[in-house]
Design a protein around this nucleic acid. Structure first.
Length: 420
RNA sequence: CGGGGUGUAGCAUAAUGGUAGUGUACGCGGUUUGGGACCGUGUGGCCGGAGUUCGAUUCUCCGCUCCCCGACCA
C-alpha cells in the first residue's frame, strides 16, 4: 500500500490523557482512534493487525476441528432468565435496551446461552458428539471503569469457542487440544515465551480452569510463577493442597504482574441443563451435554504485543501480525527518475507477494520518514533512494534489534518473496 | 460505585476578571533534501448550563468528559 493513500497520520505526541503504552503508540501510529472511554475504532492499519491475529486464531481453532459461525449481539432476556444470568444483580456488566415493539433486549457480553440454545436444535444423539464451534464477535461489557488503553474496553471483539461432548473423557481430550491450540496462538503472535497456562479455580465442575497469562509490567492481574518449571497459578490456587497437586511449593513461586490474554474452562452441564441441550446415549437415556468455553480477545492480544515488544521509538511488530512485512521508504522522490525507480521496486515486491507499505510521500523529509517508520514498526525497512539506485544495493534494517544488511536488487526480491 | 485529578486549535502546552500566546500539524511562497531542517505568511481554540459582575476562558454552583487509585472483572 502506498502511504499517500492512507488517510491516517502519525502524531508526534500522544494525547495527554493516555497513559497506557499500548494506547499511546497505537494512537500515535494511527492504528486506533479512541471514540470514548473504552471504545476504540480500529483504523486501516490496526484492522490489518487484528485480522492477522484473527487469521492465526482461526487456523489454530480449525486445526482442532472447530467450525466457525456467527451469532448475534442482540439477546433475548427469556433465554438468559433460564440460566439466571439476566438480572443486573447476577451480572453487572450488562448493557440493556428496549425494543420499540415493547420488551427488553440485551447486548451480548458472552454467548454460552445463545450457542447452547442453538445446539439444542441440532444435537440429539451421542453420535452427534463431540464437536466444537466458535465465532469472532463483538462483546459489550458495561465495565465500571475502562482502562489500560485497548486492554479493557466496553466494546471489543472476542473469539469465543464452545465444545460439546458426551463424556468427561471426550471433554478432557478436547479441552487439552484447545489448551495446546491456545499455546500455539500465543507462540505465533510473538508472546509465547512470556505467556503461561495459569491454573485458576475451576468452579463447580472441575478442579481447575486455565487462564493464559502474559507476564508484563502493564498487567492488571497477578500471577505466581515459576519460570523454570514453566508453571503459573493465580491467587485462588495458592492453597498448599492445590500447589502440591501441581508439584510446586509456595516459596518457589514469584509474584508477577500479568495480562490475561486467554481463558479456558469447563462448563460441565450448567448451561445444557438450564437451557435443555441434551442427547440420547446408547442406552436411550436423555442426558445433558458436557460443555467447555474458550475465549481470546484479539485486541487485548494486540495491545499485549505492543506493550511487550515496543521500544522508545515505537512499535515492533512480529512478522506474523505486522500489517506489512516491509516498509519501503522512498527518498529523493522529487527526482522523477528516482521516483520511477522506487515505484518499480514497490511494484516488484508486490508482484512477488510481499506485503509492503511504501512511503511514497514526496515532500516529507528523510528524518520524518524514518521516525514514522520506527513508530509504525514494520519488521523490515528498505530504503529506495538516489544512493541505492546508483549503488544498486539496498539497505535493509530489521526493526527488532536494528540489524543492517545490504542486498542487491535480486537478493532483495528473493529474500522477501513468499514461498510459492 | 467510593476517592482524587482534569478539560484552552487536529495534537501538545501558556497566560489572564477587560482584543487568548507558543510549538507542532495544516494552507500558500521560497531555501533545503539520509534521522522529525529553515525563512516568510496564513487558517484555526477557552466542555455545557446557571449564577456573581459593567464585563467570565478565568470566580461560584450544577452537569458532563477523560485519566488515575480502589472495589468489580463468567
Amino acid at each position: 500500500m502506498k502511504q499517500t493513500q492512507l488517510f491516517t497520520k502519525t502524531l508526534k505526541e500522544a494525547p495527554a490523557d493516555e497513559v497506557a503504552k499500548n494506547a499511546q503508540l497505537l494512537i500515535r501510529g494511527g492504528y486506533v482512534y479512541k471514540n470514548m472511554a473504552g471504545v476504540y475504532t480500529f483504523l486501516p492499519l490496526g484492522l490489518k493487525v487484528i485480522e492477522k491475529i484473527n487469521t492465526i486464531i482461526r487456523e489454530e481453532m480449525n486445526a482442532v476441528g472447530a467450525q466457525e459461525m456467527y451469532m448475534p449481539s442482540l439477546q433475548d432476556p427469556e433465554l438468559w432468565k433460564k440460566s439466571d444470568r439476566w438480572d443486573d444483580d447476577k451480572v453487572d456488566v450488562w448493557f440493556k435496551g428496549e425494543l420499540k415493539a415493547g420488551g427488553d433486549i440485551g447486548f451480548a457480553w458472552t454467548h454460552e446461552e445463545v450457542i447452547t440454545e442453538i445446539m439444542s436444535k441440532y444435537v440429539s444423539s451421542y453420535k452427534d458428539l463431540p464437536f466444537s464451534a466458535y465465532h469472532i464477535q463483538t462483546k459489550f461489557r458495561n465495565e465500571m471503569r475502562a482502562k489500560s488503553g485497548i486492554m479493557r474496553t466496553r466494546e471489543f471483539w472476542m473469539k469465543d469457542l464452545y465444545t460439546f461432548c458426551a463424556t468427561e473423557e471426550q471433554h478432557a481430550e478436547i479441552y487439552e487440544a484447545y489448551a495446546i491450540a491456545y499455546k500455539n496462538v500465543f507462540d505465533r503472535i510473538g508472546i509465547g515465551d512470556k505467556t503461561y497456562k495459569t491454573f485458576a479455580s475451576g468452579g463447580a465442575f472441575t478442579k481447575f480452569s486455565h487462564e493464559f497469562q502474559t507476564l508484563a509490567e502493564a498487567g492488571e492481574d497477578i500471577v505466581y510463577v515459576n519460570e523454570a518449571k514453566g508453571i503459573a497459578v493465580n491467587e485462588e490456587v495458592l492453597a498448599e493442597a492445590d500447589l502440591s497437586e501441581l508439584g510446586v511449593t509456595k516459596d518457589e513461586l514469584e509474584k508477577r504482574k500479568s495480562i490475561e490474554v486467554g481463558n479456558i474452562f469447563s462448563l460441565g452441564t450448567k448451561f445444557s441443563e438450564a437451557i435443555g441441550l441434551t442427547y440420547k446415549n446408547e442406552a436411550g437415556e436423555e442426558v445433558p451435554v458436557i460443555m467447555g468455553s474458550y475465549g481470546i480477545g484479539p485486541a487485548r492480544a494486540m495491545g499485549t504485543v505492543v506493550d511487550l515488544l515496543s521500544d522508545e521509538k515505537g512499535i515492533i511488530w512480529p512478522e506474523s501480525i505486522a500489517p506489512f512485512t516491509v516498509h519501503l521508504v522512498g527518498l529523493n522522490l522529487d527526482d522523477s527518475e528516482i521516483k520511477d525507480f522506487a515505484d518499480g521496486v514497490y511494484d516488484s515486491l508486490k508482484k512477488r507477494g510481499v506485503e509492503v507499505l511504501y512511503d511514497d510521500r514526496i515532500e516529507a523529509r528523510a528524518g520524518e520518514k524514518f521516525a514514522d517508520s520506527d513508530l509504525l514498526g514494520m519488521p523490515y525497512r528498505v530504503v529506495a533512494s538516489k544512493k541505492t539506485k546508483e549503488e544498486g544495493q539496498f539497505e535493509v534494517v530489521t526493526r527488532k534489534g536494528g540489524e543492517v544488511r545490504f542486498l542487491m536488487e535480486d537478493e532483495l526480491y528473493d529474500d522477501f518473496a513468499t514461498e510459492a
